[in-house]
């Protein structure tokens, strides 16, 4: 388990969309998934998660429906729409572009 890190502002939407890109998940499942793939370094605030889910759904990037969990509970499951997939690709490209640029700067030989 590595050191805990803060969520980079503005990336929650992208992470949530990534979380539901393969299979549909409920809110708790999304938070758990993000925590588990980052080895618990990244936690998702519930206070931010639900507003984010509703915002993404309102924009048409997520859709949702009620399903039964494996424990037989009723839960709201979210999945990525086609628009959402396109948006996720775009966000990802932008993120990787800027991350690469930042890295280039940091790796560059500093000149006197």
């Amino acid at each position: 388990m590595g050191e805990r890190v803060d969520l980079v502002p503005g990336t929650l939407g992208m992470l949530v969309m990534k979380a539901v890109s393969a299979e549909s998940l409920h809110g708790f499942g999304i938070a758990r998934w993000i925590e588990s793939v980052t080895g618990d370094r990244l936690t998702v605030e519930e206070g931010a998660l639900y507003p984010a889910l509703h915002r993404l759904e309102k924009r048409g990037w997520l859709s949702s429906d009620w399903q039964r969990t494996e424990h037989g509970r009723r839960a709201r499951y979210y999945q990525l729409t086609r628009d959402g997939r396109r948006e996720l690709d775009a966000l990802r490209a932008r993120w990787e572009g800027s991350a690469a640029a930042v890295r280039q700067v940091l790796d560059a030989e500093a000149r006197a």
Binding site: G27, F28, Y50, T69, R73, R74, A75, R76
Partner: peptide, 12 residues
């Protein structure tokens, strides 16, 4: 719906 979602989250 929101209340149910939150309730489900807490119970999980």
């Amino acid at each position: 719906r929101i209340r149910d979602e939150v309730a489900h989250h807490i119970s999980e």
